[in-house]
């Protein structure tokens, strides 16, 4: 790691999102274990800034576990252990002395099941900024509005900001959760099967939203839905369970290539629906 990388971190990330060679997130020879269980095996890949990367694969292949490497959400599982190098903006995020809270502020996450807090829509979005010390009502109003606009839900909720975040539909809840993440101005948004609990129309809305957001954010999405990966992503990583039940990276390439001209036979089998 060079000093230059450290310096870029302290400057405005809007201008220097990516490290020098253009990648934003990087895995190098990464292994993840839960106790004795080898969940992710020997994965290496680089993810570019301001793009959408889809992680696909059959269920149980370690997609979500891999996603959770990037914001150290696996830390919450006591038996989890990580080997190898995980970099964000050129910084090894598993080295000692890393501020995990700061990391998660910059690498936000949206979950499979919409999980708005049991409080008002406004308070849901303002939650992050408030915790990070913003008290000024005017600034908060501004952040809430901007975030809800970015999450393409403003028009639907602007008249009921005081209502409970649980009172809106599932698709709206998920966009509210995205707004909640946007409100803390992350650089990366990790999405763990964000549409699996939603109906097709709500799914399309989220996908449109992702396309728009990708002009400014790096998005990594785990999905079991291949069409979704094909529709929204720039790059696609295909994961599979090996013989030892550990998840490993089979192929990583431009989405077009993966879906039209996969290099690996297994990828082709999966894409064409022969298994999974």
């Amino acid at each position: 790691m060079t000093i230059g990388n450290l310096v870029t971190l302290k400057t405005d990330p809007a201008n220097t999102r990516a490290a020098e060679d253009g990648h934003c997130l990087r895995l190098q020879q990464v292994n993840l274990y839960y106790g004795d269980f080898h969940a992710v095996k020997d994965v290496s890949l680089d993810i570019g800034a301001r793009s959408i990367t889809a992680i696909i694969g059959p269920s149980g292949c370690g997609k979500s576990s891999m996603l959770r490497l990037f914001n150290r959400m696996n830390d919450l599982i006591p038996s989890a252990r990580v080997e190898g190098l995980v970099e964000f903006d050129g910084v090894d995020i598993y080295q000692s002395g890393i501020d995990v809270v700061e990391l998660r502020k910059r690498v936000g996450m949206v979950f499979q099941k919409p999980n708005p807090f049991p409080m008002s829509i406004y308070d849901n979005v303002a939650f992050g900024p408030r915790r990070h010390g913003i008290r000024n009502k005017r600034i908060l109003d501004e952040i809430v509005e901007k975030s809800l606009i970015q999450a393409a839900i403003w028009d639907e909720v602007k008249d009921k900001l005081g209502q409970s975040g649980l009172s809106i539909s599932g698709g709206q809840q998920q966009r509210l959760c995205i707004a909640r993440v946007l409100a803390v101005e992350p650089e990366v948004i990790l999405m763990d099967e964000p549409c699996s609990a939603l109906d097709p129309i709500a799914t399309l809305k989220i996908e449109d939203l992702m396309r728009i957001l990708s002009t400014n954010y790096t998005i990594v999405i785990v999905t079991h839905n291949m069409q979704q990966a094909a529709r929204v992503s720039d790059m696609t990583a295909f994961l599979m369970v090996g013989e030892d039940r550990a998840g490993m990276l089979v192929e990583y390439a431009h989405t077009n290539e993966i879906f039209t001209n996969p290099k690996n036979k297994k990828t082709e089998d999966y894409i064409t629906g022969r298994f999974g």
């Binding site: 914001n71 996450m109 939650f127 992050g128 909640r180």
Partner: peptide, 9 residues
């Protein structure tokens, strides 16, 4: 998780 994932301690 929702709270931790947006950088709240």
């Amino acid at each position: 998780e929702g709270s931790l994932a947006i950088g709240v301690s």
